[in-house]
């Protein structure tokens, strides 16, 4: 490759919770399957990291359809954590990643704290890069009615117990369906999390007015896509003021500009979710667009703009 000797290419590499990423652009859990679904379309080795679809202890069939409906610039889903279960994941899905040089973060969810601990222990010896605790799926029933991420004490308990059970880098995926997301993020930090991923989907619904029935079989679902981006951004901004652990910004990112907004607000990395459905190459285009932005603005290192928001003095 010919390049002017003086102009060093901008550095997009970051370190996130002890994981070295080539760039800050990941793909979000539940929107990229187990990698193999997109491998023909996307050069997986170019991604910052892959967060696999959430795994539970036992296989889950998932919710009755209809599970998905498009809304104004968004998507409502109620998949219900359909997955093959941890054993089949390890035996059938994990070997696929051996050929790739991309960090793999495994998302796990349990109905109880014990299940999270058991999942973390089971994955401890496997060839994975990190864990993401999904404490915020809006589409499954919890014993305790609230999801973990809606209860500061429960969040603290599950994060600290998983922390003791694993030496893997530990991220926690937070719910936006709370009054004060920063206080939940703080709990994660205190309990030993290495990072927080925010946000998961907003609970929402859509109605068929002709028969006056909810469109989703489960009545409500989780809203994602560009419709939620401004709220996700505000939440990243608030959490960044409160915690020191790295933030993975998620919520309706479609372009490099969207990703940069999250980075400037305080996210060290970002993840593409619904954007993968719209354009399988969204993540790659975001990486290239961030690089172009850095060249244009003479930014040598992406880390230098994380949380660099200039607010007017009040």
């Amino acid at each position: 490759m010919m390049r002017k000797a003086k102009e060093k290419p901008p550095n997009l590499a970051i370190e996130l919770a002890g994981i070295s990423l080539k760039n800050p652009v990941m793909v979000a859990s539940g929107t990229f399957g187990y990698g193999e679904e997109y491998a023909q379309l996307v050069d997986l080795n170019r991604l910052g990291a892959i967060v696999a679809k959430t795994i539970t202890l036992k296989p889950r069939l998932g919710n009755e359809p209809p599970r998905m409906v498009e809304t104004a610039s968004g998507v409502l889903n109620s998949i219900g954590l359909q997955n093959v279960g941890i054993d089949a994941f390890i035996n059938e899905k994990l070997p696929f990643f051996r050929e790739y040089d991309v960090p793999l973060i495994v998302s796990i969810a349990g109905e109880t704290t014990d299940e999270y601990v058991q999942l973390a222990k089971t994955l401890q010896g496997e060839k994975i890069t990190g864990l993401e605790l999904n404490l915020s799926c809006p589409n499954i029933k919890y014993d305790r009615k609230l999801m973990f991420a809606q209860d500061a004490q429960a969040t603290h308990q599950v994060v600290s117990r998983v922390r003791k059970a694993t030496s893997l880098p530990l991220m926690v995926k937070l719910s936006p369906n709370v009054t004060d997301i920063a206080s939940i993020a703080k709990m994660c930090e205190e309990a030993g999390a290495d990072g927080v991923s925010l946000i998961n989907t907003f609970t929402g619904m859509a109605i068929d007015i002709e028969n006056r029935k909810p469109i989703l079989h489960q009545i409500t679902g989780g809203l994602s896509g560009p419709a939620i981006k401004p709220i996700a951004l505000r939440m990243v901004y608030e959490v960044h003021k409160t915690v020191k652990i790295p933030i993975i910004g998620i919520g309706g990112i479609m372009t490099a500009g969207d990703a940069l907004e999250f980075i400037i607000a305080g996210a060290k990395a970002v993840a593409i979710g619904t954007g993968n459905f719209v354009d399988s190459l969204t993540s790659i285009k975001v990486i290239d667009g961030i690089r172009e932005y850095m060249v244009k603005n003479k930014i040598k290192d992406i880390k230098s703009i994380v949380g660099s928001l200039k607010c007017p003095k009040s």
């Binding site: 539940g30 679904e37 997109y38 679809k53 069939l61 359809p65 993968n276 459905f277």
Partner: peptide, 29 residues
């Protein structure tokens, strides 16, 4: 069926199919 990803990743387009009790299959994949 209405689809989101189209490649079998999102599991949004499933239909009920026969299994030991039943299972869900992806319309897109």
């Amino acid at each position: 069926e209405r689809l989101a990803c189209g490649v079998g990743a999102c599991l949004g387009c499933v239909v009920k199919a026969k299994g030991s009790t039943y299972t869900y299959k992806r319309v897109c994949k």
